[in-house]
Design a protein around this nucleic acid. Sequence first.
DNA 1: CTAAGGTGCAACCGTCTGGTTGCACTAGTA
DNA 2: TACTAGTGCAACCAGACGGTTGCACCTTAG
Lengths: 108, 108
Amino acid sequence: MSEDPTGRVFDALADANRRYVVQVLAGRDTATATELAAELPVTRQAVAKHLAALNEAGLVASRREGRETRYALTPGPLAEAMDWMASVGAEWDSRLEALRRHLRKRRP
Amino acid sequence: MSEDPTGRVFDALADANRRYVVQVLAGRDTATATELAAELPVTRQAVAKHLAALNEAGLVASRREGRETRYALTPGPLAEAMDWMASVGAEWDSRLEALRRHLRKRRP
DNA sequence: CTAAGGTGCAACCGTCTGGTTGCACTAGTA
DNA sequence: TACTAGTGCAACCAGACGGTTGCACCTTAG
């Protein structure tokens, strides 16, 4: 995968726990790994790994604050991924529309 | 992952080859595994596996036509995934907006 | 009928991944 | 200073994943 921003975002969002973390972060704006681990059926370290993955995808930013590290959402890449889907969807839609016009022309 | 529609879509879209297949399908509306394999650096069987994954994610539909199986896009689930991202993004945006209002109130 | 194109299935392989445990380190606190 | 909460790092494991090869099974063209 390496140098593939869009791919990393989709990959990050492919995991249910990771998506849950993103959701929580979206409604709470900041959280630590241990806080998140408390609401998930996995270890703190597992959550830390997930946060690292989200961070590598650019979806999350970490900031050390005293003895705890707080994580916050960075929804920029999310918009990029949405752009990809939107463009694919748009192209498909336009093709569908063209087909529709074609059929209408052949059988008015 | 099992019973997780959104997760399956994101997982399907996480692979670059798979995204390429989706792109091609969006601009060509139908293709076979061998056709797609011709434009990719992998074997036909690998493409077949990718198509199976896309099919399981509901992004693609297969239809046997004589001795070849043609695949076509089914962008419904794509919209679902976009909805997920949009909702998360919206929540984040609203929180950001609330913060903005708060700051404006404190320092008019 | 026979040959060739197109699929599908199964086995196999190296690598990545999600998860765990254990331990060491840093920063507040009594 | 001694204690405790919160991290980070490393090793390890089972399973999934992307990819390949080999082969058997239709379907169409000569």
